[in-house]
Design a protein around this nucleic acid. Structure first.
Lengths: 256, 256
DNA sequence: CGCCAAGTTGAGAGCCATCAAATAGCGTGG
DNA sequence: CCACGCTATTTGATGGCTCTCAACTTGGCG
């Protein structure tokens, strides 16, 4: 599969413009030790010590957690351009697993490589924080999604989010995008059963809100789906105004 | 109310030991501009630009998000020693609100104060990252909680978590602790209705797992409640071995 | 052609929501 | 001291969203 070294760059461009030197550095990070993972294979498992940062170059992955009795919750989807836990090395061990959904290619980046990059280009620190903070915001929104929305809204919301995130890294074509998730995975992410996901998808199709099949998702009328799902994209913090200056570069270097 | 400037120190001691100088700096941060917030009052609201870091000195607060149609989800509880989003200034605006549950005292800390502290004591950077990463881990666990657990387990799990976190900052007395949440708030946090929370609490009481009343919680047999709730404390990342050296201090300063 | 995974359908049950009303707790004011 | 009013808690009855169990269909692939 072709690797997509620029996904991270496209992602960060949603937050800020990048100089060619900064892009160069990001491209170098994306070129670190590649690793290919087969579908349904784990990238890192609960209990492992986290010693590398993974950058998804290609394919879909997910964070998930399994309870003792086998129940399994998907916590997040990782799309191309997503970075796993910068500074996760602070913690002793993973409290959840990360697994590939499709075949996945990741760059495995040592923490010191990131430190070097940030030291050379302090503005990148702010960008990486933005990346981290939006991941947290997404996690919060999932809490809202599962806690408050009906199955119909919940699945609709998930589809809106995934589409928006794919769009941000240039992986959509008009109103459609590749969509490799099987219904069981949608179920695991939304806290529903596969059976009910099936019926709810039929409802969404019935209302003409989505066209889903053959691993391709089409959302003919995004505003309508968003309204039906109570989706408000603010939490993704995309399309921020491009804020140039390194006005407070000092603070990036330290806490950032 | 007496303020508790050492809550943050006690919290961080769960991760690492601190030199007296480091403690001094943290205490200084806790002494920044105090602000008192009345119960049910907002500290910061969705849409506001986040320009300060809040450190909870006293009382309980929560993050929450309200949907257009009024449904409200509590996303996290903020206890003494909790710090709100270091580096949140990277984002343009809050995507959720933070409100006081009880009367709350916070220290309002400018980002540059934190930057200074970290510059002076690089080890603190690692500690603050630990703080941030555990908050994320808790958010993930809430996703699991709401997505996979029954009402009974869900409430039990929440109580276990809150108790463990209070214990970490020295706010428990034996098997009990102050517990200011009303049933409606437990409902908002667990994605249940107040009525069902009421009935479920009665079940928990009926099984002798909790004693709850007069704003005091007693958990006579914690292991039993944990087992009944499928609670595993690992995700809180407390009681890490105390890792001394500033072996990779360089990396703290940069991405840290 | 047969196998296996994924998707679909049906029937029935159960957990939790909803609606409504009663009770309890508690500070305030008469 | 008791009445009052508010909020929090509790209880009852009913309904529905979602789960569970089970079987069937479809589709991809060797």
């Amino acid at each position: 599969m072709p690797m997509d070294k620029d996904a991270l760059i496209r992602r960060i461009r949603c937050f800020t413009s990048l100089s060619t030197e900064e892009e160069q550095v990001l491209r170098q990070l994306a070129g670190e030790r590649q690793r290919n993972i087969g579908p349904r294979e784990d990238i890192i498992r609960e209990g492992d010590p986290p010693h590398l940062v993974y950058l998804v170059l290609n394919g879909w992955a997910c964070r998930y957690k399994t309870l003792e009795d086998g129940r399994r919750q998907i916590l997040a989807f990782l799309l191309p351009g997503d970075l796993c836990d910068i500074n996760n090395n602070v913690l002793q061990e993973m409290d959840h697993s990360i697994g590939a959904i499709t075949p996945v290619t990741v760059a495995q980046i040592g923490h010191e490589r990131i430190a070097d990059a940030v030291a050379a280009f302090p503005r990148l620190s702010r960008a990486l924080w933005w990346h981290t903070l939006t991941s947290i915001a997404i996690q919060r929104e999932w809490t809202v999604n599962i806690g408050q929305r009906s199955a119909f809204e919940r699945i609709g919301h998930l589809l809106c989010e995934l589409f928006a995130r794919l769009e941000a890294v240039g992986l959509t074509r008009g109103t459609q995008c590749d969509f490799p998730l099987i219904q069981t995975e949608i179920a695991g992410a939304t806290g529903l059963t596969p059976v009910h996901v099936n019926r709810t998808l039929q409802e969404l199709r019935g209302e003409g809100l989505i066209v889903l099949g053959n691993r391709v998702l089409d959302i003919p009328d995004m505003p309508r789906l968003q309204a039906a799902s109570l989706f408000v994209a603010d939490y993704l913090h995309l399309n921020c105004e491009i804020r140039g200056g390194d006005d407070d570069a000092a603070s990036f270097r330290s806490v950032a």
